[in-house]
């Protein structure tokens, strides 16, 4: 048996863990960490499918991972900038303090 199912289990666990952090945490920094976990779960999938799938001369899996890492970094940079902007107004990173917009 190939270790593919094990790796998929690991990535699914990581994704669920990230989603759980996003849904339960009130601190925006920790939510950002959760999003990064979810991105990395996808990266594990790409490498696992590439390694244990049929031969792939185009290296699509590793390509996906390289681009995903770069995008996750850009996303974190943009996210921290936005969080900082919010912090200037509320002096907090607590999501519950952000309630000026409602219908």
């Amino acid at each position: 048996m190939t270790p593919l199912p094990l790796l998929l289990t690991l990535s699914s666990l990581l994704f669920t863990l990230g989603l759980f952090a996003v849904l339960t945490r009130r601190n925006v920094i920790l939510i950002l960490v959760g999003i990064e976990l979810m991105f990395n779960a996808a990266n594990i999938n790409f490498i696992a499918f590439w390694r244990y799938g049929p031969p792939d001369p185009d290296l699509i899996g590793p390509m996906f991972v390289l681009f995903a890492i770069a995008i996750a970094a850009a996303e974190a940079a943009v996210g921290l900038a936005i969080i900082l902007m919010g912090f200037r107004h509320t002096r907090s990173t607590d999501l519950n303090r952000l309630d000026s917009l409602h219908g």
């Binding site: 936005i82 969080i83 902007m85 919010g86 200037r88 107004h89 952000l98 917009l101």
Partner: peptide, 8 residues
């Protein structure tokens, strides 16, 4: 403050 919240 509203734009910051919307953006976040």
């Amino acid at each position: 403050a509203r734009a910051a919240e919307a953006s976040l």
